[in-house]
Design a protein around this nucleic acid. Structure first.
Length: 634
DNA sequence: ATAGGGTTAG
């Protein structure tokens, strides 16, 4: 005699039953099969049942039997089968089995079945709660995730710490700092603060919400730091603009004897990329070599980016060629590397190679490509790519693509086309776009258009003092002193001040940092002298400060004294001078002013072998002595 | 049986 409630299983054909729904299955808990063992074969969610002597099928009453089968489920349909089988065999009372089914539903993002099953639990244990909260988080249903979490906390049962990382991650992904802080309180209240999982996730959450102070405080207070905590903190420093500190942590971590894994290394590599210091990049690469990591896609791609941003596109390419597996991100990173090193043709060649290997470009690939074109003066190619991406690859241009195109036209002196593009575009215009237009106006002295761009920038970022200064300079050049006064007054009124720029010099693998007028560095006298000499050489070589360059930031120039804001031209002049043989002198100027997002040159670097690298908004342009590889628009 | 950290653009 079979003891389950047959009405919950619908007969599909003779001796065969189908599990109707999870809620009807719940009812089966009350009447498990006790006396009979059922031999079952399954197809299409149907259970074929024949009665067999108990001894031959005792294994199907073992929880282990179901657990191992649940783990192997690649999709939902075998899960239904197993679920039905569990019901029929009366194993739904076993919390381990039932929770595993619950977990398997959430793993396949079927929260409907999971919650139906969950609701039938008279006393969900912490495991069940955790699986539900995590399930909603994985499925991207953040509302229900938080709701379930609250219910869990209020349910009165003593919670364990497994649920926390789920909800904290949701706060991180949604950048919901307020919720994150309140979860932090819960963590504290239940004494989970000593749990490295919860704490590491909180550190990560604070970092991604850009509150490095809270991240640091938590990390410093940790009693035990494991590999992940260190990794998260290294990433946090980089994320919040302190890559220097990230590398200090890397050293501390090694000193404590922690062995880094690939994920940790990716974070260290990112710190180097952000810093842009070749010396550090080499140390990190050495470490990676010594530890014999295979270059997987992610680590390899991160290293391509690191070498490219540290100025060596060749080393980047070496890594690229060494990688066995490459995905679209690796290709895009390498294309971008050529782009910001001013080698647009190589970027295009690589793109064609990529297409040849059957990899489809995405929106980011096209950003890198268009960038490469604009910075190499490849106007026709850029235009062609811009239509190709839409017609051939169905990539809708976003603000970044338009920005590249405006830059492409602008640098090539085709301001009217740039303007037309902006006027015709239907998507929202962001600060990058106006910045690109302003950059073009600066080069070509288009005052009215620059005024429009600067005004739009101020409208978008009213707190960015740099925009006001630019606008005021535009008015000053046009002799519109009333407007100048108005803008300056507006600035004072809003208590806006420009953040001073800083400069760093790398000599013999050592970094020397100083800000304008700062003489605290022991070698600052020599540094200023070097800059002075460079300027003299530049002028001897025929460089004349361009007084027609109407829209530059006068304050900025005054500050830096020896270097011009218009560093692109300066770099060409630099190309005519030589550097002391054998001494790697790299002078890097960083106009890091108020998040200045235009195409102003952000760095000028001078390297041995008479190669000049201009770093412009994170991109590099190479100039070799006696020539310029960047097209004719310079 | 369940939990934390990774790549391109900006």
């Amino acid at each position: 005699m079979i003891m389950y409630r047959r009405r919950n299983l619908v007969p599909s054909n003779r001796g065969s039953y189908r599990l109707l729904s999870i809620s009807s299955a719940q009812m089966m808990i009350e009447s498990p099969c006790q006396n009979q063992i059922l031999d079952q074969t399954f197809s299409n969610q149907s259970i074929h049942i024949t009665q067999t002597p108990k001894s031959e099928f005792s294994h199907i009453l073992e929880p282990k039997f179901y657990l191992s089968r649940l783990v192997k489920c690649k999709n939902l349909s075998p899960v239904y089968q197993i679920h039905a089988q569990v019901i029929v065999n009366g194993l739904l009372q076993n919390p381990i089995v039932t929770n595993k089914i619950l977990y398997t539903y959430t793993l396949h993002k079927n929260l409907g079945n999971a919650s139906a099953l969950f609701r039938g639990f008279s006393k969900p244990d912490p495991f069940s709660w955790s699986v539900m909260v995590g399930g909603y988080a994985k499925a991207g249903d953040f509302m229900n995730c938080f709701r379930t979490f609250k219910e869990y906390i209020r349910s009165g049962i003593v919670p364990d710490s497994y649920t926390l990382p789920f909800v904290i991650r949701v706060c991180r992904d949604t950048k919901d700092l307020q919720m994150g802080r309140s979860i932090h309180n819960v963590v504290y209240k239940f004494g989970w603060i000593s749990d490295p999982f919860s704490t590491a996730t909180l550190v990560d959450m604070y970092a991604k919400c850009k509150v490095i102070e809270d991240a640091t405080q938590l990390f410093d207070g940790m009693l035990k730091r494991d590999l992940v905590s260190w990794t998260v903190m290294i990433g946090a420093c980089t994320e919040c603009g302190n890559a220097d500190e990230a590398l200090v942590l890397f050293d501390r971590m090694k000193a404590e004897g922690t062995v880094l894994d690939k994920v940790a290394m990716v974070n260290v590599v990112n710190a180097c990329a952000k810093l842009g210091v070749m010396h550090k990049a080499k140390i990190v690469h050495d470490y990676i070599r010594r530890t014999n990591f295979s270059l997987d896609v992610i680590l390899g791609t991160a290293m391509i980016d690191m070498y490219a941003k540290c100025g060596s596109v060749d080393s980047a390419r070496e890594i690229f060629d060494q990688m066995r597996e490459k995905n679209i991100i690796s290709w895009s990173a390498m294309i971008a590397a050529y782009g910001y090193h001013g080698d647009g043709q190589k970027a295009l060649d690589l793109f064609n190679m990529m297409l040849g290997s059957g990899i489809l470009p995405n929106n980011i690939t096209f950003v890198s490509l268009l960038y490469a074109c604009s910075h190499s003066g490849l106007v026709a190619e850029g235009l062609q790519l811009f239509s190709l991406m839409q017609d051939e690859y169905g990539v809708r241009p976003d603000a970044k693509h338009f920005t590249c195109m405006v830059d492409l036209f602008g640098r090539a002196g085709k301001l009217d086309q740039a303007l037309k593009l902006i006027e015709d575009m239907s998507i929202e215009k962001d600060e990058g776009l106006w910045g690109a237009l302003l950059g073009a106006c600066r080069i070509h002295g288009h005052v009215e258009l620059a005024e429009k761009a600067a005004e739009s920038l101020i409208e978008l970022q009213p707190q960015n003092a740099g925009h006001y200064v630019l606008l005021s300079n535009i008015y000053a050049k046009a002799g519109r002193w009333k407007e100048v006064a108005k803008v300056r007054k507006l600035m004072t009124h809003q208590r806006l001040k420009k953040v001073p720029g800083w400069t760093w010099i790398e000599v013999d693998n050592k970094i020397h940092k100083f800000s304008v007028g700062d003489c605290t560095h022991p070698l600052s006298k020599e540094i200023y002298e070097e800059l002075k000499q460079l300027r003299e050489k530049v002028e001897l070589a025929g460089y004349v400060p361009d007084t027609n360059f109407v829209l530059h930031d006068v304050d900025e120039e005054l500050k830096f004294g020896c270097l011009y804001a218009h560093s692109e031209r300066l770099a060409i002049s630099f190309g005519l001078i030589s550097t002391p043989e054998g001494t790697p002198i790299r002078i890097t100027k960083n106009l890091r002013v108020c998040g200045d997002c235009h195409t102003f040159s952000k760095y000028v670097s001078l390297i041995t072998h008479r190669v000049i690298i201009v770093r412009d908004a994170n991109r590099f342009h190479h100039f070799k002595e006696g020539g310029c590889s960047c097209g004719d628009y310079w």
